[in-house]
């Protein structure tokens, strides 16, 4: 491993740690502010349709939107640096970018794709809610759509990204 590759991986570790820490921060402060994330409650609400859990999906979307926003930002900060290397030295750039085709990085990229898709689509959803004033129930349905699109997009994208790993 070259020095610049090591530096990149160190940066990536910092970014990952920051994302994990931010996630923990969001979920812990949510616990104090509004009772926190209740994954089981969400599932129960979806299955049992209990009326006071109507907003659970939106609540999760709110957390995930924050977390994915931070994750994309943190990764982009690192990515700007490694792309910037090209201006310095195309050779260094190639060295770093060789890492991007390792299986581990490809998995990371899949996560990144999910974050990007969710954040963008949910952002559009919020735009619709704001402009059209559709109400809580429709907001929940739009979220279902965002979820489906995000997972479909992530699945398709992941297939492409991970193809070289599994391809003979």
């Amino acid at each position: 491993m070259t020095a610049v590759q090591f530096a990149f991986l160190a940066g990536l570790t910092v970014v990952s740690a920051a994302i994990v820490a931010f996630t923990a921060l969001v979920l812990l402060s949510a616990r104090r502010i509004d009772g926190g994330p209740h994954l089981l409650a969400v599932l129960r609400a979806r299955l049992g349709r209990s009326p006071y859990d109507l907003a659970e999906g939106n609540r999760w979307a709110f957390y995930v939107h924050r977390i994915t926003g931070f994750a994309v930002f943190a990764f982009l900060a690192l990515h700007l640096l490694d792309v910037g290397l090209y201006a310095l030295s195309p050779a260094l750039f190639d060295e770093v970018h060789a890492l991007y085709s390792t299986p581990l990085m490809r998995v990371f990229e899949c996560g990144l794709l999910f974050a990007l898709l969710f954040h963008a689509l949910n952002g559009l959803r919020l735009l619709v809610i704001d402009l059209a004033d559709v109400g809580a129930r429709a907001a929940g349905r739009l979220l279902d759509g965002v979820g489906v699109l995000t997972f479909a997009g992530t699945a398709a994208g992941s297939a492409v990204i991970l193809w070289p790993v599994f391809a003979p």
Partner: peptide, 22 residues
Amino acid sequence: HYIYGCSSACPKGLDPAASIRR
């Protein structure tokens, strides 16, 4: 932030989120 926690929790069936939008 469009969570709608208020409107789905209100025990009197009010819709504060709609008030905020309005």
